[in-house]
Amino acid sequence: MTLKEYVKDRTVFLLTNFILFIIVGGIMLLVGINSQTVLLIFCIWFCPLILYMWIEYFKQKVFYDELTSITENLDQKYLLPEVMKEPETVEGKALYEVLRQANKDMHEHVKSYRDRENEYREYIETWIHEIKTPIASTRLIIENNQNDVTRNIQEEIKKIEEYIEQVLYYSRSNNVSKDYLIKEVPLVDLVRKVIKRNSRDFISKGISVNLEKVEGTVFSDAKWLEFILNQLIGNAIKYIRERNGKVIIHTVRNEHNIVLTIQDNGIGITEKDIHRVFEKGFTGENGRQVGKSTGIGLYLCKKLADQLGLGLTITSKAGEGTKVSIIFPLTNVNFMQ
């Protein structure tokens, strides 16, 4: 609050006093009272008034400056009523009560939406658990009736399982800290496990896999890392050339981190799309061409990597391929954010 703003806010009050004094002073002059007496009355009238307004201005300025400072330093602005001091002025107390009521109402609304979110997430997780039973039964039926048709069905079942897994990890992505176990993870074992999981797709598309010096051990959650790596390798398979496709996986150990890179010679990503691939729901030109993209996979990978304390970068050139790197800090624990 500036002095100019304060005076502007009190303009009507000051004008009223000046008009009243002019009327009173005019009457006094008309009845023969000398001008010195009128000037004395002016001083008696306005000196205490101006002094009072000056003191009030400084009190309000201190209050609002403190309020502004607290608000600027708060990450969660709605906590303002809980940390601010109760003001002494009537106006300040009224504002304080309004903020307290608004804060209380906001907390109730947030709790309501949070309860709904948790309820929905629990339902999704329960549904995923239940859907695994008929899928397992379908796989058993396929194993006992092997032919070209059932093999094709099995491939579709695999895709369904991957989408279900994606839904599960998406529903848990805001609560990673409640569902992780940090331990030593040998990268070569992790990579081989994911490659084996996608072996049918590699074989059916004639894609070769080259593991170039994949080594090193990191500290993270193996389950979440497997999901991220499976999404990245799945993308490489999806957007690779039908024949003569190649996926190269290697690690580089630096002073402060280990970088695991997945490189393919697929269709690549255009320059205008490369900066948006981690956005939720973004599919770009490749998504429209291939027609199988949801725009969730890379978004989810980035979100989980951030929460696990990992880096995730992507470089690409249209028509030449894509390179995705997971950066593991060389610490004993990748702390959750």
Rank of each mutant, 00 (worst) to 15 (best):
G311C: 08
S69H: 10
S35E: 08
A222D: 06
G311S: 07
V214L: 00
E226P: 04
S112P: 00
G25Q: 00
V83P: 00
T126G: 11
I249E: 02
P134W: 00
L232K: 04
N286C: 11
I33Y: 10
V38E: 00
A305H: 04
C301Q: 05
K77C: 02
N145L: 08
N118F: 07
K246D: 09
K77L: 09
T16K: 08
S35Y: 10
I269V: 13
G281M: 06
V277L: 03
Q166Y: 06
I27K: 02
T2Y: 08
K246I: 08
K223S: 15
I269Y: 00
I33N: 01
S316A: 11
D9R: 15
L3Q: 10
E242V: 13
L14P: 00
S112D: 09
A94L: 13
L95M: 13
K159D: 14
Y113C: 07
H250S: 14
G287A: 13
S199P: 05
I50M: 13
I262R: 04
I240C: 13
E320Y: 07
I233C: 02
W54V: 10
Q307H: 13
F202Y: 11
I314L: 15
F278V: 04
L300I: 05
C47G: 10
C301I: 07
I262Y: 02
H250K: 12
Q36V: 08
L300C: 05
V98C: 06
E212L: 11
V167E: 04
V98H: 11
T133Y: 09
Q263T: 09
Y113W: 12
N235M: 06
H109F: 10
E255Y: 10
E161A: 08
L40V: 12
S199D: 15
I131W: 05
E285F: 12
G26V: 02
G319W: 06
N145S: 10
F335I: 14
N175I: 15
M53T: 04
K205N: 14
Q154R: 11
E119T: 15
I22Q: 05
V110Y: 13
E108R: 11
F46H: 04
K111I: 03
Y169W: 08
G284T: 08
K59S: 12
E161S: 11
I131A: 13
I55T: 04
P87C: 03
I314K: 03
Y163G: 11
H256M: 09
T331L: 06
N175V: 14
N230I: 01
G287Q: 11
W54N: 12
D201M: 07
P329H: 02
V214H: 00
I23K: 04
S316E: 03
T16R: 07
K77R: 08
R172K: 15
K292E: 14
E122M: 12
L15H: 01
I22K: 05
